[in-house]
């Protein structure tokens, strides 16, 4: 029976939550670590995503865990144990660093596109070859302008929120409408305060609209899992 992995932990917890579709969770120990999983066959559909997230949140609330993003499925317990053991050192170190912590997500959407001064001239060429390159030059200037502005926003967030560089992850211009997608790892017990601070600081940023969400299990910082 395949297993869908939810989280990695150092020890099992008392009264673990129910697994997918209400079945008991499976605890697979491997050395100093172990993982929580649910028996899972068939397609990985939308409903399972929400159920997986519920399980991860409840596990993280009970014990220090590395949350695992949805979709990590292994053939059986032996394979799960083997994979966990192969990366035990790295996973153990990540668990010690982020276990018990939560992350806050900040998304900044462009309200207007910035441009770099001195670049981004109007396309004026009358011949097709030059027109092609001028059009591309315009597009590159726009792209560079957006990227530079997004990087400046990221730096400002880190500075004004006074977060450690190791506790923040940025995706600069991850999509055409997005300036920044950032995740902040909150100090244990201070996630709500971190969220309030993020809302306050992002409200002062110009040219973007901010969406602050969380606290979430620290998925972004457990990426090695």
């Amino acid at each position: 029976m395949s297993l869908l992995i939810h989280a990695i932990s150092a020890s099992p917890c008392d009264e673990p939550p129910r697994g997918l579709a209400g079945v008991p969770l499976v605890w697979v120990p491997a050395g100093e670590l172990g993982l929580w999983a649910s028996p899972s066959e068939g397609p990985l559909d939308r409903e399972l995503v929400f159920d997986h997230h519920r399980i991860v949140e409840q596990l993280c609330a009970r014990t220090a865990c590395l949350p695992v993003r949805f979709g990590q499925r292994v053939e059986d317990e032996d394979v799960a144990r083997e994979r966990l053991a192969a990366r035990a050192g790295e996973l153990g170190a990540t668990l010690r660093r982020i276990g018990g912590r939560q992350e806050i997500a900040i998304t900044l959407l462009w309200q207007c596109s910035p441009v770099i001064e001195g670049r981004g001239h109007r396309v004026q060429a009358s011949t097709p070859g030059r027109r092609f390159l001028e059009t591309r030059g315009q597009a590159f200037a726009d792209e560079d302008g957006r990227r530079a502005a997004a990087e400046a926003l990221a730096e400002r967030l880190v500075r004004e929120l006074a977060v450690d560089q190791a506790d923040v992850r940025h995706a600069i211009c991850p999509a055409p409408d997005l300036a920044l997608s950032s995740s902040l790892l909150a100090v244990p017990g201070a996630a709500e305060q971190a969220k309030e601070d993020a809302v306050r600081v992002t409200a002062t940023l110009e040219g973007v609209r901010a969406v602050v969400s969380g606290p979430w299990p620290p998925y972004t910082f457990a990426e090695t899992a």
Partner: peptide, 13 residues
């Protein structure tokens, strides 16, 4: 040169 820009633009297009 103008000619090089034109030829390069056409080639890339």
């Amino acid at each position: 040169s103008e000619d090089e820009v034109e030829r390069m633009g056409i080639a890339l297009m």
